[in-house]
Design a protein around this nucleic acid. Structure first.
Lengths: 223, 223
DNA sequence: CTTATGTAAGGTTAGCGAAAGGTTAGCCGG
DNA sequence: CCGGCTAACCTTTCGCTAACCTTACATAAG
């Protein structure tokens, strides 16, 4: 699952990013409002965490432009002041939560988790496709009766596939979900993860279907 | 098992800490309310012991903020006065027990033990995973028919693992539980305790499973 | 002195992803 | 219709790295 963090204090950004990676998220870190605006229009995120006081374009404006584009992803605002006016302003613009600095990393983690839980599939606990079940709470997959053990890359790919049932995901989209902005996104590697996932899903009532030239799709099927 | 003690009288704090360590607990000692508030939001404790008259932020406020964050861990309040008003105030704010100074160390020990017993795992007496049984009353492990003899570090790690069945604990989390705030938390050392524990659990219907890059998990298994 | 502890050091393994060759689907000319 | 062609995809192999395991030993604690 991929999230965007926009925070201009480099050190704080780094520690927050580490914390979020610690709970299994793919994190893109940016340090100014214009870059954030760009990323939010071209990339796909499960949650955005926006500092209010950003260089080049402030967090409120980034948020306003995001909502103007009709995007509904949950946004958590960070602010130096615990100003009630700011808070109201942010919530009016469509922020979903608000956190005043300084804050505890665990509190931020908890809020991000809450936003994810609320948003991804409208608060559903579980997601199912054939005999494959994904538990959002524990972020683990169950296949038939067995718990599925996946490596972190495999997990990222399968999460991306099950997130939108019935929708074809291109290799490039998958690579973006798995690698984020930072790493060199080798979409060749995606083929390998698909292969390894297929091995693990073999013989079950679920399969990854190829759409030549388009991408992959997770689909339930008869055994 | 890890507890937080907040008491500004250094000498008293020290002797209480010693007493608690004496019954096998990992103790973090702090001396003011702000530090306590911080620690309680970022660390995980089985019990908190709060003096009422703390510098920077009093015990009542620390307690109120703790409950406002939705935390349910048991809290034992300490007060210089045996004022009934204070007592009511504390209990209204969600304190679980109350002790007036001066008190006997043995009484404090007894009350802390009682709180631990009541809270950890919702009052359950025993915790089981495969052939491994943990008795909260005596805080000892039984493996098959045999009583398991562990060093205090091994005990701390295994307690942390069995406390949340089915949940993966990272080496950092385990180190926090074992060492507390004070000591240099070398998460390398955790690998050694895991190794030594595995030796002692060898051949039994329980095992510590590694999740590469994530941590460890205690799991029952077939022999 | 004995036991517990944890650093250091080396060995082992899982996960990653590039490379390379095999396979398949769709297209096109005959 | 059919064989050939190509691009897209599948699969295997393999070297690299980081994470993990294990042993040995020095130090500290009781």
């Amino acid at each position: 699952m991929r999230v965007l963090l926009v925070e201009d204090q480099l050190q704080l950004a780094e520690s927050v990013a580490q914390a979020l990676k610690g709970i299994g998220l793919t994190v893109d870190v940016l340090h100014d409002g214009v870059a954030a605006d760009l990323a939010l229009s071209s990339e796909e995120y499960a949650v955005a965490i926006l500092d209010v006081g950003l260089p080049r374009m402030n967090g409120f404006e980034v948020l306003a432009r995001l909502r103007a584009r009709g995007k509904t992803l949950p946004v958590l605002m960070l602010t130096a002041r615990s100003d009630v006016k700011d808070r109201v302003h942010g919530l009016n613009l469509g922020a979903d939560d608000y956190l005043a600095k300084p804050f505890e990393l665990t509190e931020l983690e908890a809020r991000v988790k809450a936003l994810l839980r609320r948003s991804v599939l409208g608060g559903e606990r579980q997601q199912q496709c054939g005999s494959l079940i994904y538990d959002l709470e524990t972020r683990r997959f169950t296949l038939g009766e067995e718990l599925l053990t996946l490596t972190s890359r495999e997990q990222a790919v399968l999460e991306a596939l099950i997130a939108r049932p019935g929708r074809v995901m291109s290799k490039e989209q998958l690579a973006a979900q798995v690698f984020g902005l930072d790493e060199e996104a080798s979409s060749d590697a995606i083929e390998i993860y698909i292969h390894r996932l297929r091995k693990k899903l073999d013989g079950q009532a679920v399969a990854i279907v190829t759409f030549r030239g388009l991408g992959y799709l997770l689909e339930s099927r008869d055994v």
